[in-house]
């Protein structure tokens, strides 16, 4: 079963029952019956469903779970703490207003939420225009992520997922990893990356293509090997 196919049955369960089978605590929700909901252990999808009913405790629980991650991704992209704070707030407010934008059948909630934060941060970075890019040109070593980090935050919740992606990135050649990170976290186009790194456009295209293909293969391999 491919990486893509493996997600489909789970998505069906999520859509039908609001159950996140990726997390053990989620399976308890369907058996909970009329018992008061434990927001701390409730599944992401269940909490997202509760958002449609304007359940503030559900939003608070999701924030407690992923607030640091959303803020960290935003900070990684824009490099400004205050701006990252604004972006993170906007992401959660958007989730509150439009929880229906999350389609449980197309992936995990946390990856969707972080992609929303990343896209919002990229938009913010791009909207600040040429001056921002000039002050933060691609090619700086800061664009590169550390191979495997010891987070100051207790991130046991996503520790396994984080280790997997960090190890997968570490397996990539440095130039491929940098090109991917410049595109994903820097919001740069292939042309801009080529100019910033003073490399031919074709070279940058190849690095991005090969890098992402290898990353996908590693992730599928590691996932299937669990």
């Amino acid at each position: 079963m491919s990486y893509l196919d493996a997600d489909e049955p789970l998505g069906i369960l999520r859509r039908r029952w609001g159950v996140n089978v990726n997390r053990g605590a989620e399976s308890q929700d369907s058996e909970a019956g009329d018992r008061p909901l434990d927001y701390v252990t409730a599944g992401d999808d269940r909490l997202v469903l509760l958002l449609a009913g304007r359940d503030v405790r559900a939003l608070e629980a999701l924030y407690d779970r992923y607030g640091d991650y959303v803020y960290s991704v935003s900070l990684r992209v824009v490099g400004d703490a205050q701006l990252a704070e604004d972006i993170a707030q906007e992401v959660f407010l958007r989730l509150w207003r439009r929880p229906d934008l999350f389609d449980a059948g197309r992936g995990r909630f946390v990856t969707w939420l972080l992609s929303v934060a990343r896209n919002k941060a990229i938009d913010e970075r791009r909207s600040r225009g040429r001056r921002f890019r000039h002050e933060n040109p691609p090619g700086f070593a800061s664009e590169d992520l550390p191979a495997v980090t010891e987070d100051p935050v207790d991130s046991a919740l996503l520790a396994d997922d984080r280790i997997v992606i960090q190890k997968a990135l570490a397996l990539l050649p440095a130039e491929q990893r940098l090109a991917i990170q410049l595109a994903y976290f820097g919001g740069y186009t292939q042309q801009e990356i080529a100019e910033g790194l003073k490399q031919p456009l074709g070279t940058v295209k190849t690095r991005i293509r090969l890098g992402l293909q290898k990353l996908r293969a590693v992730l599928i391999e590691q996932r299937d090997g669990r």
């Binding site: 900070l75 993170a88 990856t111 992520l145 980090t149 994903y184």
Partner: peptide
Amino acid sequence: TADQLALAVPVVKA
């Protein structure tokens, strides 16, 4: 796959 990249970011306390 690309969305997994966000998980690689070092976590900073908000």
